[in-house]
Structure formats: structure tokens, C-alpha cells
Design a protein around this nucleic acid. Structure first.
Lengths: 236, 236
DNA sequence: GGTTCTTCAATGGTATATCAATTATTTAAT
DNA sequence: ATTAAATAATTGATATACCATTGAAGAACC
């Protein structure tokens, strides 16, 4: 038994062994892990310890198992994984914590615009301008304007290509939405959107990260209004 | 068997049962869960399924088990948990992803200063001024100045009291540090620190969030420099 | 009486065996 | 050749037994 050199329990050991192999590339993303029987034999542990370790990796979004098929290495961290982690710790009841998440989301959206201003190409700007033109077009129905608002911010995220920020933003948005549902109906005032997007695009165009950040921050102040409305109503 | 009404596997079912109980307050933070034997009987599942579910909750930082004592509900999300989630997905080898984290950390530090400017009290400002006075004092050894730099930012974080931001910042810092180790020696130029902290404090003092954010952003540009040095050296 | 030691019960940790459910592969029949 | 059935491989789940750690109650000792 040389397991004493390792740290913690058998499960901890197996977890670090597997993560190491995955990080080293022994098990590449998308590929299939050896079967549980082979793994437990190979690592010299019982099946229970192995399955507990796999459960942990599953919770962290590192692997995914299908009954009858096998266990596969996930290639990308899913925003749902982050969301699952947030749920128990930033729950509905705690309004303080909910506000923290709203603030954090505003921060990320602002940062994305700032980074976009630094990294945008001509093609990026062209795409943003096309979206804006559609928004300005008076023949565009208001429902579509709401969609284009979202599209505008997603396009910015695409330019930045920061996996971490996009992931966090997705997780926060999904998490917050479940709580603030029903308070987001009238927030996409078309006029407001139009007045906001033009200067943001201009800032991105001329590469002014500072300006882009503060303009977005102003634009999405509705997040805070939504939140305050929510708190008001729950107090009644 | 009415389990067909539930979704997914038995383990999924047990996980959602337990998280629901925890969120409802049946098992309050810090309290001890029933023993595994009791739980498996109570929930009507095998011990392996139960333990796999507990493993998942453990990975997510929701519970903590100690051999011989029992299983306890964690009251706070630990930054180490977030770090563990980041490790396999934002690893050393991928310089692109590493830069994403460096950018994200800069964003958070900047945001913390901005929020501090909005929420600071007189007492907060007094504490920050005390730190600054120590830094300015020429009799303060340079090692202490480096410490006070950290202290300054931690004090800002304390003012904001945003659990989420502080948590993410801790996790990102810890994760980045393991990779950039050895490249952080000379970054805390005392003169540079002094020149930066004074205007930041002034912005916080007069509640100018915009200014506070951009000043911090400027101040911590060393993060990017560290990163670029790191990339250079690893290319050799 | 107080301190130390032993023992024991509770609890989590591990291992093995066994069966069920699902999927993929091979084989057989038409 | 196509389809259907049998077979194998794999994960899902349970039961049972035993080990390891912890803490507390009780015994032994001074």
C-alpha cells in the first residue's frame, strides 16, 4: 500500500488522478473513459470509491455519463454547471445576495463592451451596425426590437471571445431570470434602446473602452430597477 | 414504485431532494445531516446512490463530511470550490484562457472600487486613510508596503460586502497565482503604489464610481504585464 | 476526587457480489 | 441484403459485510 503518500481519502485520490489525466490529455475532451470495471482495476480501488469520484467530476461538469454507453469527457464548461453551484448559495429568499448577482451581471456586460472596444475588427462593427439599422427602421415590430437588444449584447460578447465572461454572464442571467420573472415585461422601451445603442456602438467603433463601459452601465440600469421593483412587490 | 414521476436517475432524485430540504431550511447551515444509514432508509434508496448524491453535493461545496463525525451543511460557499471548478477548464496550457481569467480579475477589482465609492461610510474612509498614511510614511519598510497594497484592496472589498465578487476574486487570484508564480516579485513598486492609491481614495471619498473604476483599472495594469511576461518566458 | 486509559457505540469509508436497465454489437433467420 | 433476435458491454442500483475514525461513557489507577 503506497496510498499513504497521497492525500485525503481514496475518493479524493481518484478524483485528482482522473483530473490529472484529463488535464494531461490522456483522456481528451469528447473521448470515452475506460469502463468503470477497467478503471477500478487500473486504479486499484473499489467500484464505490470510483463511482463517487465520477459523481464528483460529474457535478463539476467535467464528465458526463450515459447509461449503457459510457463516461465521456466534457469539452466545455457549461453555464448550467455554474448555475447549479450558485443556486443553493444565492437563493431567492436572500435579497441581499440576489442584488449581488444583479450587480455582478451589470459589471460583466459593461466589461464585455469595454473589451469589445479594444478588440473589434471592421467586420464586427459592420455586424453591429446592421443590427442597429434594423432597430432604427420604423417598420420593425417592437417584439423584434426587444430581440435585437439581446442580439446587440450577444454580438458584443462574440467579439470579446472571453469564454469565462460569457459563461458567467449566461449563468447569472439564467439564475436571476428565474427569480425576477414577470418583472421584465416593459423594460425594453424601444426609444430607450435606440438612444443607448448608438453611442455604445460609436464608443466601440473608435475604441474608447472607458466610454463603452460607462455607457453600457448606464444603459442597463434597468437591471437595478427591475430588482428594486421585485423587492417592493415581495414586501407587500 | 412512484419514482417514475421523478426525473432522471435515482442519484439525481436524491440530490434534488436533499438540496430542496436544505433550501427549505429543514437542514439549516452548519447543522448535521442524519446519518447515512438513516438517510438511505428514509429516502428509500441504496447506500451507494445516497453516497454518490452526497459526493455531488460535496463537490459543489454544499456539504462537508468528516469521518466519524457526520455530514454537515456548509453555510458559506468557499472560494476553493470555485477554484476547483475552474482548474480543469482554465488550465495552464491554454494561454488564451489564462488571459481571460486575468482580465476577469482586473474587472472585479475595478468594480469593487466603483461599488465602494457608492457605499462607503465615513468610518470606511478613515480606515483607508490610515493605510495610506502608513504607506506614505518613509519609515515603513518596503515589504510592508507590498502588504499594505493588498490590505488596501481588501479593505475596499470589505466595504462593498458583495459576497459573490469577493468569492470570485479570491478564486481567480488563487488560481492565477499558481501559474504566474515567480513573476510577481517586483511588481509592487512602492512609488507606483503611492501614486495610485491616493487618487483612488479621493475618488472613493467623493463617491465618484466612474473615476474609481478607471483609476483601479490603470493601477492594476501590472496584471497584464505579468501575464505577458509569463507568456514570453514560456515561449523560450 | 480527579486523571488517565480502555472500551464501545455511532458514523463515515471501503470492498465485494449480484442483479437491473440501457445501449451496442454480433449472429441468425428470412 | 434486411430485419430480428440473441449476446455482450456498460452504467445504474442494492445488499451485505467489514474497516477506520471519532467521541463519549465508563473503568482503572493514582
Amino acid at each position: 500500500m503506497e496510498k499513504m503518500t497521497e492525500k485525503g481519502t481514496t475518493v479524493d485520490m481518484v478524483v485528482s488522478m482522473l483530473t490529472e489525466r484529463i488535464n494531461k490529455g490522456d483522456y481528451s475532451p469528447g473521448s470515452k473513459l475506460p469502463s468503470e470495471r477497467k478503471l477500478q482495476e487500473e486504479l486499484g480501488v473499489g467500484r464505490l470509491a470510483l463511482r463517487e469520484a465520477l459523481s464528483r467530476l460529474n457535478a463539476l461538469g467535467i464528465i458526463e455519463t450515459s447509461h449503457g454507453k459510457g463516461t465521456f469527457v466534457q469539452n466545455r464548461l457549461q453555464s448550467s454547471t455554474i448555475k447549479n453551484i450558485l443556486i443553493p448559495h444565492f437563493a431567492l429568499s436572500d435579497s441581499k445576495r440576489l442584488q449581488e448577482l444583479v450587480d455582478a451581471r451589470a459589471m460583466i456586460e459593461s466589461e464585455i463592451a469595454g473589451l469589445a472596444a479594444q478588440q473589434r475588427t471592421k467586420a464586427d462593427i459592420r455586424r453591429l451596425e446592421m443590427i442597429l439599422e434594423q432597430e432604427v427602421d420604423s417598420s420593425t415590430p417592437s417584439e423584434l426590437v426587444a430581440y435585437l437588444d439581446l442580439q446587440f449584447h450577444q454580438e458584443l460578447a462574440l467579439i470579446v471571445d472571453n469564454h469565462f465572461l460569457v459563461l458567467m454572464h449566461e449563468a447569472l442571467t439564467a439564475h436571476i431570470r428565474t427569480f425576477l420573472n414577470g418583472f421584465v415585461k416593459s423594460r425594453n422601451n424601444p426609444v430607450e434602446v435606440l438612444e443607448a445603442h448608438r453611442p455604445i456602438l460609436e464608443a466601440v467603433k473608435r475604441g474608447d473602452a472607458e466610454d463603452a463601459r460607462s455607457l453600457v452601465r448606464l444603459h442597463i440600469s434597468y437591471s437595478r430597477r427591475d430588482y428594486e421593483n421585485f423587492i417592493e412587490k415581495t414586501k407587500e
